[in-house]
């Protein structure tokens, strides 16, 4: 039984560390990526998987179901809400033309969304 317990502890620790590391790279990405759209990538993928792993690690470590249910909810809402907020931010950024066009290989939308009459910010090219 103790063997099983320590194995579970190791798995939990690996999940927690890996999750924390991924969240760290998400934060790092927010600083290091060149424009809003790239930063949103950092804010969704590693961030969400990081939170999922931390939740998984915590669920393994905390015995008992009542905590696990709560962690499951946190994970579910993270999965559902992170893409929505990232989309809202990037949509506004795109409409306000906060896009580094010099970093784009292809732009199939062109300067299309002019409905809002976005003004050109200083970092637009």
């Amino acid at each position: 039984m103790t063997d099983l317990d320590s194995a579970a502890d190791v798995v939990a620790a690996v999940c927690l560390l890996l999750g924390a590391l991924l969240c760290l790279t998400a934060g790092l990405g927010l600083v290091r990526f060149p424009d809003v759209l790239s930063r949103m990538h950092a804010g969704t993928k590693p961030q969400v998987l990081g939170v999922l792993l931390v939740m998984l690690g915590a669920a393994i470590r905390l015995h008992g179901w009542s905590a696990s249910w709560m962690l499951l909810l946190v994970a579910a809402f993270q999965l559902v809400t992170a893409p929505v907020s990232a989309h809202m931010v990037s949509r506004i950024a795109h409409r306000r033309r906060h896009v580094r066009r010099d970093l784009l290989l292809v732009d199939e939308l062109g300067g299309e969304p002019a409905e809002l009459g976005g003004d050109e910010p200083a970092d637009a090219h």
Partner: peptide, 12 residues
């Protein structure tokens, strides 16, 4: 999700 997280993490 794992692959893309790893990719983005590596990019940072």
């Amino acid at each position: 999700l794992v692959v893309s997280s790893a990719q983005v993490a590596w990019e940072t």
